[in-house]
Amino acid sequence: MAKPNKRGKSLWLIGLLIVLFSVGSSIGVYLLMDSQQEASADEEQSEPEEAPDPIFVEIEPFTVNLQDDEYRERLLYVGLSLKVGDDKTKEILEQYMPEVRSRLLMLLSDQEVGALVEPKGKQRLANQILELFDEPLAEPQPTLDITGVLFSEFIVQ
């Protein structure tokens, strides 16, 4: 009779372990799901960040003579804006606008007509305009945060 009693105790112990394991697993799943719900509730409550207002520096349109292989007179009428990242850059560009316009005039008058009529040529020109500002306008000068060149008017004649 000793054997059935021992066997009953082991079944009782195995049953108890199964119940404890099930309860522990249930508590773990509940806590995990609760923490995920709290995280998603926090995400929903926080307002999405708004993008900062863009800052542009408009450069008045001007006309330049272009190079032409056939020695004909060709003109470029261009208006553009520079997209800047901060107000300090805008202030510096506005303060040095005559020099900015002069640099642009020199760059634009050195362009060839054939390159400017293609979209890739316009993109290349925008990149060259950005490179103009690698050289400081004044000494010392903080780094200018110019992020883009936007053409508002572009006529090649």
Score class of each variant (00 low, 15 high):
Met1Gln: 03
Ser10Asp: 10
Trp12Met: 10
Trp12Val: 06
Ile14Ser: 09
Gly15Trp: 11
Leu16Arg: 14
Leu17Cys: 04
Ser25Gln: 11
Ile27Val: 15
Tyr30Val: 13
Leu31Ala: 12
Met33Asp: 10
Gln37Ser: 12
Ser40Asn: 15
Asp42Thr: 07
Gln45Arg: 15
Glu47Asp: 15
Glu49Phe: 13
Glu50Thr: 12
Glu50Val: 12
Glu50Gln: 07
Pro54Gly: 02
Val64Asp: 01
Asp69Phe: 04
Arg72Phe: 13
Glu73Asn: 08
Val78Asp: 01
Ser81Gln: 13
Ser81Trp: 02
Gly85Ala: 03
Lys88Trp: 06
Thr89Leu: 00
Ile92Phe: 00
Pro98Trp: 04
Glu99Ala: 04
Ser102Cys: 07
Arg103Gln: 05
Met106Asp: 14
Leu108Asn: 01
Leu108Cys: 00
Gly114Met: 10
Gly114Pro: 02
Ala115Pro: 00
Leu116Trp: 13
Pro119Cys: 04
Lys122Gln: 14
Arg124Gln: 10
Leu125Arg: 01
Gln128Phe: 05
Gln128Leu: 09
Ile129Gly: 00
Asp134Trp: 09
Ala138Cys: 11
Pro140Arg: 08
Thr143Arg: 00
Thr143Ser: 07
Leu144Glu: 11
Glu153Trp: 03
Glu153Cys: 05
Phe154Leu: 00
Phe154Lys: 00
Val156Phe: 15
Gln157Thr: 11
Gln157Leu: 13
